[in-house]
Amino acid sequence: MTIWKHWTLPKNEGTRLHELGTSKICVAVDTAGEGDILAAMPIYPSTAAGTRTTGKKPGISLPPLTDSAWTRFYIGTDDGYKLSPAYPPLPVCVHLRESFFLPPGTTLEGWIFSRIQVRITANEAEVASFPLQRPFKTLYGTPDAGVVCRYDEAEFLASREPIVSSFNAHPGYVAHPVRLRNTSSDPVLVSDLCIYGEQLSIFGVESIMQSERLLFIFSSSGVRMSLDGQAPLPPGATTIARPLVSGEERFIVRSFELFKTMTRI
């Protein structure tokens, strides 16, 4: 059963836990006058401090709904909320676990993966958006001209084939088809790729999700990222999330004109 759908309020069941991989999103309801307050909170695997085990069955002790760990949102008389995948608000810098050299004048197609966030909306308004792992940050570029990004790690899958296998169907990841082109006259060490999620859609079937194809051009003047059209989608794929920026902005080439230390020619 897919998690990305409209859910009714957990009024008679206490706190509802949505599990995505090793992370959990807790959702609870608190009454406020004639309306309701939706409270949400993420639980990451590393935050085991609030976890207590009773015998063999693990139990989770949650803080009271008045605790600041909960994000609270007044939803009035709305009967439910919607969970949907979203990109992080910051650009994502995907650090490749195994960096590689791209020879001059070559083009390489493949896939990288980045972690999505869980977006909770009620009555079309965003209640909260939580990353599915404890979020860390990194700098893409140099300390004088770089971009502060969300840190992510991934393998580079050098394949032109569409992603359909269940191996890549983790509900917390979105696959990005990428095309890397080295137009310079020297080999480039590719170790980090920066993705602007605000420009991208999420297409998918069940838990297989992917974005549009991205083109990274490494030239002597720097790295340039742009959208490279639509890669083949899994059969029956639908649009789950649309880009946050307008169509015109979306197709404007986002140039960084900077060298990553590790991708320096």
Partner: peptide, 8 residues
């Protein structure tokens, strides 16, 4: 530390 950058 969540705010500390991985790189640099």
């Amino acid at each position: 530390c969540q705010n500390a950058l991985k790189n640099p």
